[in-house]
């Protein structure tokens, strides 16, 4: 025999506990009070920040350093366009599921960060009204040039122009990236450094091998010469030609 209306009373006890608990136990709260900006100022219209202020505000407009929303273009230290990592290879444009990236390759090449001269994006637009924040562009980029931003105050009164992020809006420094996604950026930088080191080591090894080969060749030549001299034979020494196979990238078959 259960109490008449016992289930209802039990439920009411639960809600009463929650009612009281919400005042004392912060864990219980579903919502948190929205914090005003420290300077007590609300943006009038999100698109209306002056550029410097927007850069400054970007610290407060990111949500958490885990979140992602729209892509941005990374550049290393220095002038954005001088150090932009993007080489306008257009892989992201092709792979983008909703087709929101638009790239125009530059006519000329530009040297960046000690690398050999490459193309750069003359136009790089992302239409964030179409972008669905899937991060596939980040994954397919072979140059680590595109990563996800987490700025959320993007509202604008201009439907077509305002939601179209141009190249200059998208350019963000690596420091900024470190600021918004510390863990991810550190991991990425480490990977780049590792890859670079590996490449360097490989290059070094290759150079050494070359050197060795050259030495061996010289030695062999010297020996051969000596031999030649000794035996007066008419045989030139042959250095082994390095076999260079260029693994062609598999065609996508489109």
């Amino acid at each position: 025999m259960s109490l008449l209306g016992g289930g209802i009373f039990k439920g009411m006890a639960v809600t009463l506990r929650n009612f009281v608990g919400s005042y004392f136990d912060k864990e219980r709260l579903t919502t948190k009070e929205y914090a005003w900006r420290t300077d007590d100022k609300l943006p009038e219209r999100a698109g209306d920040y002056p550029k410097e202020e927007a850069e400054q505000l970007s610290d407060t407009t990111t949500v958490t350093h885990y979140s992602r929303n729209f892509p941005m273009l990374l550049h290393d230290e220095g002038e954005p366009m001088d150090t932009v990592r993007c080489v306008a290879c257009q892989i992201c444009e092709r792979e983008c599921p909703p087709q929101c990236i638009y790239i125009e390759k530059s006519k000329d090449k530009m040297e960046r960060g000690g690398n050999k001269a490459q193309f750069y994006p003359a136009t790089f637009d992302i239409d964030v009204s179409v972008c669905m924040s899937c991060q596939i562009c980040v994954e397919v980029c072979p140059f680590d040039a595109i990563v996800m931003n987490s700025q959320f105050e993007l509202s604008t009164p201009d439907r077509f122009g305002g939601l179209l992020l141009r190249r200059d809006d998208l350019l963000k420094s690596n420091d900024y990236y470190h600021k918004i996604h510390p863990e991810e950026a550190a991991a990425r930088d480490k990977r780049i450094a590792d890859e670079k080191a590996a490449k360097e080591a490989k290059k070094k090894a290759a150079e050494e091998a070359k050197k060795k080969a050259a030495e061996a060749k010289a030695k062999a030549e010297a020996e051969a010469k000596a031999k030649e001299e000794a035996e007066s034979a008419e045989k030139p020494a042959e250095a082994p030609a390095p076999t260079h196979t260029d693994a062609k990238k598999e065609d996508n078959g489109e």
Binding site: N18, S22, L29, T30, T31
Partner: peptide, 8 residues
């Protein structure tokens, strides 16, 4: 109601 529902 908000407090019952753990809102503010």
């Amino acid at each position: 109601l908000a407090r019952i529902q753990n809102r503010i």
